[in-house]
Structure formats: structure tokens, C-alpha cells
């Protein structure tokens, strides 16, 4: 099987190292579980939803573990930002694939890649210095769910646009030409041929973008105001699950620390589910 000893060694080493790579995921889940075990055992899942407040330090009988307002905030943020980013992202991909002048078509992906490469703290900084005062002028305090939705929508826009664009580029040209040959108008071609044929690809793009929105921490932390409350309007300051971890990990002890890890584990499960669904969609897209 291995006429050369170096081949055997190389295969063995790369095999071991690739299991190390795969093991990272196992380690992550393991540590999240071990660190949060205390809180699962003493508190259980239900109190995260039913406790009135979030004051997780001290002993378990007096501590409060109410995550509900933060869950609502995270959910609204993800839903709001994807509702904003998905149509614009798909529109921008259509623009880059079929509508824009030739030169623009070529630089468009570069620009979007650059947009996607901007660090999230820079988005947060821009949101804090430019966007928040704008919102505040209309409806104080400015740091709000709305600010978070706008900033996160901008951050996930590149994911939607680039993945959708690559779906369009994989469509067979014959599909478009034969629709055109049937005398269907360009708008009709987009709506009756291109978009339906790319449905799986667009779904993958949107799901992966949602994954990013759910996990986004820094920008949200910087523009959302971090008040623990269920928002009464888009202008209410809110705190998301991710921001909560970032804010409190530095000083969290025992039950508090354990509760933060439990939040992390829950986030991880949600994101894993989304990724697996997205990958399944992508698999479907591959068979079109």
C-alpha cells in the first residue's frame, strides 16, 4: 500500500492533524457544556424563560436568570436585519449579474468583498458616531434596536449579495436564452426564470446571513444601548444575548459565569442548526 515510508508518515500525520481540526468543535461544545453544567443542574432550562429579572450572581435561590427580554432582542435584531438585508442583497446581486454596465459588473464583487472585510468594531464605531446621533435627533436616546438592525443589516449585506451572485453565475446561460427566445420580457425572465431557479441558493445565502446576525456581538454591543428590557418600539435600547456575554464575562463568577456559558451553548445550538439547514439547501442547489 505504501511503497514509500515518507508517504506512510505523511498520511498518518495529516490524518491525525485533521482529526485535531475536527476535534476543536467537540472541544467547544464540551467546554460550553462543562462550564454551564452547574446552572443546568441547579436552575434548569425553564427559569431562563420565566424568571423576572437577570441578576445571576449570589446563591441559586435568590439569583434571577430571566433571559427572556434578551432573547426577544436577539430575535428581533436578527429578523429585522435580514428583512432589510435580504431584498437589497438579492437586488444588488441581480444588479451585478444582469443590469449593471460591464465595468461595474466586474468591480462590484470587489467592492462587496471589501465591505465584508470591514471589521465589526469599525461598523460599530461608525454606527455609534454617525448613525446613533441621527436616530437620536429624531427620537432619543439613539442607541436602540433600530440602530442595531441597520448596522447588522449592512454587515450581512455582503454575505447575501455575494452568495446570491454566485448562485446566479452558476445558472446555465441556456436557461436565460431559451426564456428570452420564448419572448418573455427581461423583468419576466428575472421573476419567472432566474429567481425560481436560484431559490435554494438564495435560501442558503439568507440562512448563512442570519447565522452571522445572530452571532454578531461587537457592533450590536456598541449601538444598541445594552438596557435589559423587551423593546416597546424600534427606538428602545436593548441588550442582546451576545452583548450580554461580552459585557459580563470579565467579572462573572460561579453561577453567573455558568449562566453566561449556558447562553453561549444555546447560541451555538441555534447557529449549528441554521448552518446544517443552510448546507442542506446548498446541497439541493447543487442538483438543479
Amino acid at each position: 500500500m505504501f511503497p514509500s515510508k515518507s508517504d506512510f508518515l505523511l498520511r498518518l500525520t495529516t490524518c491525525l492533524l485533521s482529526w485535531v481540526s475536527a476535534l476543536i468543535l467537540v472541544l467547544i461544545v464540551w467546554f460550553l457544556f462543562v462550564e454551564s453544567e452547574l446552572v443546568w443542574r441547579e436552575v434548569g432550562v425553564l427559569r431562563f424563560l420565566t424568571d423576572d429579572r437577570w441578576s445571576p450572581s449570589g446563591d441559586f435561590s435568590s439569583a434571577q436568570f430571566g433571559l427572556f427580554p434578551m432573547i426577544v432582542a436577539s430575535l428581533l435584531l436578527a429578523v429585522g436585519s435580514i428583512l432589510l438585508a435580504a431584498p437589497i442583497g438579492v437586488g444588488a446581486a441581480l444588479f451585478a449579474a444582469y443590469y449593471a454596465p460591464r465595468g461595474v459588473r466586474q468591480i462590484f464583487p470587489r467592492i462587496v468583498e471589501l465591505l465584508g472585510g470591514i471589521p465589526s468594531v469599525v461598523y460599530g464605531l461608525w454606527g455609534l458616531v454617525v448613525l446613533v446621533p441621527l436616530i437620536s435627533a429624531y427620537h432619543p436616546p439613539g442607541t436602540s434596536l433600530l440602530a442595531g438592525i441597520v448596522v447588522v443589516a449592512i454587515m450581512i449585506l455582503p454575505t447575501v449579495a455575494l452568495l446570491t451572485l454566485s448562485t446566479f453565475q452558476q445558472l446555465p446561460t441556456s436557461l436565460i436564452h431559451s426564456a428570452a427566445a420564448l419572448g418573455i420580457a427581461p423583468t419576466g425572465i428575472v421573476r419567472s426564470v432566474i429567481l425560481p431557479a436560484s431559490r435554494s441558493g438564495i435560501m442558503t445565502a439568507v440562512l448563512l446571513a442570519v447565522t452571522r446576525a445572530v452571532g454578531e456581538t461587537m457592533a450590536v454591543l456598541m449601538v444598541c444601548g445594552n438596557v435589559i428590557q423587551a423593546p416597546s418600539s424600534p427606538f428602545s435600547p436593548v441588550r442582546t444575548l451576545t452583548a450580554n456575554i461580552a459585557l459580563e464575562m470579565a467579572y462573572a463568577m460561579q453561577s453567573h459565569r455558568s449562566a453566561l456559558f449556558a447562553t453561549g451553548l444555546a447560541l451555538m445550538l441555534v447557529v449549528t442548526l441554521l448552518v446544517l439547514i443552510a448546507e442542506q439547501q446548498r446541497g439541493k442547489a447543487g442538483h438543479v
Partner: peptide, 25 residues
Amino acid sequence: RLIDRSLDVLAGVPSIVFGLFGNAF
């Protein structure tokens, strides 16, 4: 396939969760 899939999931893990993991591990 197992290694591939676990890398897909790893790519989607939020950075704050990496922070928790990095701190604990």
C-alpha cells in the same frame, strides 16, 4: 464527511462563543 461537516459548523460558530471557549480552554 464527518470532518467536513464539523468544519462547516465550526465556520458558523459566533465569535463570542469562540471567546467563551478560548477563555475556558
